[in-house]
């Protein structure tokens, strides 16, 4: 199948679903993307989303089930120049415990600390959380406020092709991303934040462990002399995708974190989210929580 073919899986999210026929566990990135060429492949990482989804009949396996856990290029957490690279196979536990992450990206540690349970954290991967593209995915909000890029690999012709995409443009809807069926996520790249950088994550659920976010909030910025700049705000579970909150950001950018600014930002936040009613909460309650907790997080940052 060439790139020019209108039915190419490179172009569309169309699902050529068939019965599972083949299991494949590549040991190199080249083997993996070669296998992905036809597009009729289900990728398996930790399986913590895939297994319950297939058991509930919400997804069907494609012809080939490809276990990516033996590809060395997908693991590890490293400092590369001014960027921290986290491999797609890094588990939530590995991320939480890694010294580079703990030192530079505490907001990601905070999110991981509210993620599922130990058992799920030991199996679930960052790549899986990103590709599952749930509006409530807990690492996605911190990755948005950290301005992460998603690394993608594919083999459009005979050669390995790799490129990066800002995570703020990666998600298109619940479970939907710009990644084509022939692409593999190999990791994320996060610029090392400046020394003035401050960031916070808040997850609202009904219980301390094993809960899907009702809403989540990430706020990051550089704070100097009480003024916040380079502000990035993101919200989870309040729109079809995890959301960069640009109106809230403008309400804060370059301002003193005083009571008036904080209230204005909280109101902007409430007005720019677009939540739904579901079994976890109503849209009304989600908006209220976005307002109240954005305010609380900002007050907390201002006091620190």
């Amino acid at each position: 199948m060439s790139l020019g073919d209108t039915k190419s899986p490179f172009d569309s999210e169309e699902d050529p679903m068939t019965e599972l026929k083949r299991y494949f566990a590549p040991t190199s990135l080249d083997q993996a993307v070669e296998c992905l060429k036809g597009g009729n492949v289900t990728i398996l990482a930790g399986g913590t989303d895939l297994t319950p989804q297939s058991q509930a009949g919400r997804i069907k396996f494609r012809e080939t089930l490809m276990n990516i856990r033996h590809i060395p290029q997908l693991s590890g957490i490293t400092l590369e120049g001014n960027e921290i690279r986290i491999g797609a196979l890094a588990t939530i536990t590995e991320i939480m415990e890694h010294p580079l992450v703990r030192q530079h990206l505490p907001v990601l540690v905070e999110a991981c600390d509210h993620f599922a349970s130990d058992q799920i954290r030991n199996a679930g991967t960052l790549g899986g959380n990103i590709c599952n593209a749930s509006p409530a995915g807990d690492t996605l909000v911190p990755l948005l406020v950290l301005d992460a890029c998603v690394e993608l690999a594919s083999m459009p012709e005979a050669k390995l092709y790799r490129h990066c995409m800002p995570i703020s443009t990666f998600f298109t809807g619940p479970g939907k991303t710009r990644k084509s069926l022939c692409e593999l996520v190999t990791g994320v790249r996060i610029p090392v934040p400046s020394p003035d950088h401050r960031s916070r994550f808040y997850k609202h659920g009904t219980r301390p462990a094993l809960d899907i976010s009702t809403i989540s909030i990430g706020i990051a910025g550089d704070i100097k002399d009480g003024v916040i700049s380079n502000v990035r705000v993101a919200f989870g579970a309040v729109a079809p995708t995890p959301l960069r909150a640009t109106a809230t950001e403008s309400a804060l950018e370059g301002r003193h974190l005083d009571a008036a600014t904080i209230e204005a930002a909280a109101v902007a936040a409430r007005d720019e989210v677009n939540p739904i009613d579901d079994v976890r909460a109503t849209a009304w309650y989600r908006r209220e929580m976005i307002h109240n907790m954005t305010k609380r997080v900002l007050e907390n940052v201002a006091q620190a």
Binding site: H204, T214, I276
Partner: peptide, 25 residues
Amino acid sequence: FTPEKVYRALHGQAPKRYWKPWKAE
């Protein structure tokens, strides 16, 4: 006494008993 039910009561909102199915607004 879920958080939403308590919050609604504290803010004078009637409890919402039945939930709409999953669908985007």
